[in-house]
């Protein structure tokens, strides 16, 4: 494991590249999922309101 994590003299560049990639992809996925869920609820609420009006 120690050998696996030992990335030599350029380790900081390698881990920064992986860190940026992971952070950006995770944040994009979580935000996309959250706004999709919120929009799902808004549509359901709007439908319920319309039913109540009729």
């Amino acid at each position: 494991m120690a050998e696996f994590l030992d990335m030599g003299k350029h380790a900081v560049f390698i881990w920064t590249a992986y860190g940026f990639s992971a952070a950006a992809l995770v944040v994009l996925a979580l935000r996309s999922r959250a706004s999709q869920k919120a929009s799902e609820e808004q549509v359901a609420a709007a439908r319920a309101r319309r039913k109540g009006d009729n």
Binding site: L25, L28, A29, S32, R33, S35, Q36, S39, E40, Q42, V43, A46, R50
Partner: peptide, 27 residues
């Protein structure tokens, strides 16, 4: 495949937004 997953979420979000704006304009 990551793109496929996130793209589907974002498509659903856009479709829902479109539905909401149609409902609003009808109301």
């Amino acid at each position: 495949v990551y793109f496929t997953v996130v793209f589907i979420w974002r498509m659903k979000f856009e479709i829902n937004n479109r539905k909401l704006s149609v409902m609003r304009s009808v109301d």
